[in-house]
């Protein structure tokens, strides 16, 4: 009991001691980098539609996503993406570039533990929960759609 009291006091003291991070500069970086990525995506989309008139709007979206996923993966492999991510935070995580990076980075990291149990198995250690929650969410929405 006494110990719990002591731990509670200590945790409160540490919490107060930690210098509060200033959110504004990192928010600013997140927004302008994230915005830039989205603008680039829009640009890809518009150029595809402009240069290849036979492509449908739906397919143009898919091509845009493929370009963004590829670029993020490629930059991860080059060892550049983690530096951009450390600077921009959510700005690179929220767009599809973050998802791509979260799959490529463990693949690179665990390559030396073998192709199957290293790279393939550990590729999803970060993205796995996102995929699971996405699937569960779509199941729930599907059920609602079925009955309502």
């Amino acid at each position: 009991m006494q110990e719990q009291e002591r731990n509670k006091r200590y945790n409160a003291y540490v919490e107060a001691k930690i210098a509060k991070t200033h959110a504004w500069p990192s928010l600013f970086n997140s927004f302008w980098v994230g915005g830039l990525i989205c603008t680039f995506g829009q640009l890809c989309n518009d150029l595809i539609l402009l240069w290849f008139p036979s492509v449908s709007t739906q397919s143009a979206w898919a091509y845009t996503l493929i370009i963004l996923i590829f670029l993020a993966s490629f930059l991860t492999g080059l060892g550049v993406f983690d530096k951009i991510g450390a600077f921009a935070g959510a700005g690179t995580i929220v767009p599809i570039t973050g998802f791509s990076n979260s799959i490529t980075s463990p693949a690179v990291e665990f390559k030396n533990e073998g192709i199957i149990f290293g790279m393939c198995a550990k590729m999803f250690i970060i993205a796995g929960p996102v995929i699971v929650s996405g699937t569960v969410a779509s199941m729930i929405v599907g059920l609602i759609y079925l009955f309502v």
Binding site: G79, D82, G85, N101, T104, S105, P106, V108, E109, I126
Partner: peptide, 16 residues
Amino acid sequence: RQFRFPLELGNQRPPT
């Protein structure tokens, strides 16, 4: 690799 995230993951390190 053992305790945190893959090296190339674009995350931010907590200030502490």
